[in-house]
C-alpha cells in the first residue's frame, strides 16, 4: 500500500467508498432526495394528474391564506401539539422515575409499557374507539361510576374528539419516551444523590437540584422529537376519526393527503407541505437556540 502513488490511492479510495454507498444511495436519491427537492418546485405550480405542471409563482400560497379549511387544519394541529407535548413529557418522565426505583416487577413493567408503541395504529384506534364508545364503552361507564352524570361523547362529539385523540396519542407514545428518559436518568452519577442526601436535601429538593438539571439534554432531545411528532401527527387521526366529526380533528398532514391524493391537486398539496416542513424546521431551530442560550 505504501508503494502506491498518493494520487492513485486517493482515486482508488473514492471508487471503493462510492461502491459501498451506491446500493443504498441510488434508492435514497430517487425516492427521498429528489422528491424533497421537487417539493420546492411543485409548490409554485398548478398541477393535477392530467396536465403538466404550470408555474404560478406564489398563487398557491395566496390561495392558502384565504383557505379556511387550511386554517382549521393548522389550528387543530396546534391544539394537538399544545396538549400532547406537555402531557406526554409529564407522563413519560413520571413513568421513568417510577421505573428507575428498586421495586419488584419493574423489569416486567418496562417491557409492558412498550406494547402500545409497537402495536399497529389500526388496532390501537379500533380498541380505543370501542373503549370510548359513548353509550356502552368502559371509559364512560367508569366516569358514570365516579359520579359524572353526563360523560362526553368522545369521538362522536366535535368538542371531545380532539381530547380523545390526544389521550390515545399519549398512551401510545409514553413507553417510547419513557425509555429515552430512563436512558437519561442512568447517566446521572449516583454520587450527586448521595451528596445531596448528606446535605439533608428532601426528595423534592433532590429532584429539583439533581434530577432535572441532569436530565436537561435528554429533556431537550425528547421535546424536539415530540414537537416534530405532534406537528406531523397523521395516521392515528386518519384511522381513529378521519378528521371528524366535521373538521374537528382535521390536521395539516391529513389536509395534505386530502389535497394530494383525494383531490389530485399536487401543486397545492406541495405548498401546504412546505408550510408543515417550515413549521417543524422553525420549531426545531428555536428549541436549539433556546437550549444553547440556557445552558451557557
Amino acid at each position: 500500500m505504501t508503494t502506491m502513488p498518493v494520487r492513485r490511492r486517493r482515486w482508488r479510495n473514492t471508487a471503493v467508498g462510492l461502491s459501498f454507498l451506491l446500493p443504498n444511495f441510488i434508492g435514497f436519491l430517487i425516492l427521498t432526495l429528489i422528491p424533497v427537492g421537487l417539493l420546492f418546485y411543485y409548490a409554485f405550480t398548478e398541477w393535477n394528474v392530467f396536465g403538466g405542471a404550470t408555474w404560478t409563482g406564489l398563487d398557491n400560497f395566496r390561495q392558502m391564506a384565504r383557505d379556511t379549511t387550511f386554517w382549521t387544519a393548522l389550528r387543530n394541529t396546534l391544539y394537538y401539539a399544545a396538549f400532547h407535548i406537555p402531557l406526554t413529557l409529564g407522563v413519560s418522565l413520571g413513568l421513568a422515575l417510577l421505573l428507575n426505583r428498586k421495586l419488584r416487577g419493574v423489569a416486567f413493567f418496562r417491557t409492558v409499557a412498550f406494547f402500545p408503541y409497537i402495536t399497529s395504529i389500526v388496532a390501537v384506534a379500533q380498541i380505543w374507539n370501542m373503549l370510548f364508545s359513548p353509550g356502552y364503552g368502559p371509559v364512560n361507564e367508569l366516569l358514570r361510576w365516579v359520579g359524572v352524570d353526563n360523560p362526553p361523547g368522545w369521538t362522536t362529539s366535535a368538542d371531545w374528539s380532539m381530547p380523545a385523540v390526544i389521550l390515545v396519542g399519549t398512551w401510545r407514545d409514553m413507553g417510547y419516551y419513557m425509555l429515552l428518559f430512563l436512558a437519561g436518568l442512568q447517566t446521572i452519577p449516583g454520587q450527586l444523590y448521595e451528596a445531596a442526601r448528606v446535605d439533608g436535601a428532601s426528595a423534592w429538593q433532590r429532584f429539583r437540584a439533581v434530577t432535572l438539571p441532569g436530565l436537561r439534554p435528554t429533556t431537550f432531545f425528547i421535546t424536539v422529537l415530540l414537537t416534530i411528532g405532534s406537528f406531523k401527527v397523521f395516521d392515528l387521526i386518519l384511522v381513529m376519526t378521519n378528521g371528524g366529526p366535521g373538521q374537528s380533528t382535521l390536521v395539516l398532514a391529513q389536509y395534505i393527503f386530502r389535497k394530494g391524493f383525494e383531490e389530485n391537486q399536487f401543486g397545492y398539496a406541495s405548498a401546504v407541505s412546505i408550510v408543515l416542513f417550515a413549521i417543524c424546521l422553525v420549531v426545531t431551530v428555536v428549541q436549539f437556540v433556546v437550549n444553547k442560550r440556557r445552558s451557557s
Binding site: R10, V36, F234, I256, F261, L276, C280
Partner: peptide, 30 residues
C-alpha cells in the same frame, strides 16, 4: 476516507429532519 463523503452524509442527515408527510406527494409522483 474519500472526498465528498461528508457532504453526502449531510444529505442523509438533512432529509431525516424533513417529515415524510411533507414529501409524500412528490414521492408519489416519482
Amino acid at each position: 476516507h474519500f472526498p465528498g463523503r461528508d457532504v453526502l452524509f449531510l444529505a442523509y442527515i438533512g432529509t431525516l429532519a424533513v417529515p415524510w408527510q411533507s414529501y409524500m406527494v412528490p414521492q408519489f409522483v416519482m
